[in-house]
């Protein structure tokens, strides 16, 4: 649930905010952020920053993997399997990098207000995507080895 870690009063008031305020809250600019709460311990700030960088690197790895599977890896599995894999990986990369600032800002906000850190859907999303991609690769390899008697 999105609201986990916040009080029910805040959750209720969020529900009544017009979309522009909600958008501004989810995608705050530097000035918006500096107005929230107080400056957190510099170690927490740096930990949040490193986590953000790690997500960016993950997105870059997915991008490189997605393009490599289409353009570098030789044909394998059923027709179109490389295409499916490549697009899945690259779309995941776009989703991760496009939402990474929003997640960084959510954590920054929680740190500044001394609140529990917000839950993130990304570890689960990434786990599911990598599992699905691995299963497709496995299926393709089995399909291949069944197709010809090597």
């Amino acid at each position: 649930m999105r609201m986990t870690g916040r009080t029910s009063a805040q959750a209720r008031s969020d529900g009544h905010q017009p979309w522009r305020l909600r958008w501004r809250r989810q995608w705050p600019n530097a000035a918006d952020i500096r107005r929230i709460g107080s400056e957190p311990d510099y170690r927490f700030t740096l930990a949040n920053e490193r986590t953000f960088l790690a997500w960016i690197r993950t997105a870059l790895a997915l991008l490189a993997g997605g393009i490599a599977v289409v353009q570098v890896v030789p044909d394998f599995g059923f027709p179109g399997s490389r295409r499916v894999l490549g697009i899945t990986l690259v779309v995941t990369s776009i989703v991760l990098s496009a939402t990474s600032y929003r997640h960084w800002a959510e954590v920054e906000r929680a740190l500044r207000l001394g609140q529990p850190l917000p839950p993130s859907p990304f570890p689960r999303l990434l786990g599911i995507v990598i599992t699905v991609v691995s299963l497709i690769v496995l299926a393709s390899l089995l399909y291949n080895s069944g197709g010809d008697a090597r």
Partner: peptide, 28 residues
Amino acid sequence: ADGMSAPTAVAALAAVATLVAVGGFLIL
């Protein structure tokens, strides 16, 4: 000293990463 957060650098980096990923998608 606290006050280390750098929202602008984070936002810029996220934007560039997204651009590169979208560019890669178009190449694909």
